[in-house]
Amino acid sequence: MNHLDLFFQTMRAFLVGQIPIDTVESQLGPSSSGSRRFAFYRTLVRNDHHGFMEKLYGFTQDVLQDHFSGCVSRYLTAHPPDHWEPNQTGARFPEWLRHDSEAILIAPWIGDLAQYEWFEFVVYTDPTPDNPVESGLSLNSTMRALKFEFDVPGWITSGRPLAEPNPGPARRDLILLMYRDSRTLQCKFLEATPWTQLIVTSLENGDDPLRVATAAGADAETATQAILELTRVGLLHNTSS
């Protein structure tokens, strides 16, 4: 193995925390700047990785408090960052949290909370331009339909993440539609009702939502009102005059 290959192999193991600086020095030789400065690079990388996670998962950190850092360390060991986009460091955190026994012991709903935070970021930066179709109804292209087992959205809206003592969100199955408002470019969300789900699905399938809703038993007035409301909040675009 040439010097450069050995250098990278050893530094990789050191920078992700698999080997201590002594082992690096015995394999590569010392740095002429001294061990303390050489070892400092592990601290820098760790701080960078944790910093991205803290920015993405502010509420999750508030809930887990002192346990957050340990959780992130275990997560990063399981999923070392493998993408050039720094925020992708946190992409698998919500799913990982759902299976981390320490985190779910503190808050059984922690995976739902992290999912909410992750998709806030995803929707905010979604690259699709969300252009309405030329004529007729279309769905906001940034929309994500997400399953929750706890009422995290209601809990966040009521400002309770910062409450003391904090009972956490109520147990409740729901589907949340998260999307970016084309006017304000901010992330919004809406809990899906059976009618909204039907309208969204029909548009995704290229069907006429009014026809699908009335065929499913809605009266035309109810279905029209539901479509108008979804258009008003920016989840649908209506370009028909």
């Binding site: 192999q9 920078l15 690079y41 960052p81």
Partner: peptide, 8 residues
């Protein structure tokens, strides 16, 4: 290096 981004 080795498919890990250190972001530093």
């Amino acid at each position: 290096a080795g498919n890990v981004y250190f972001h530093d």
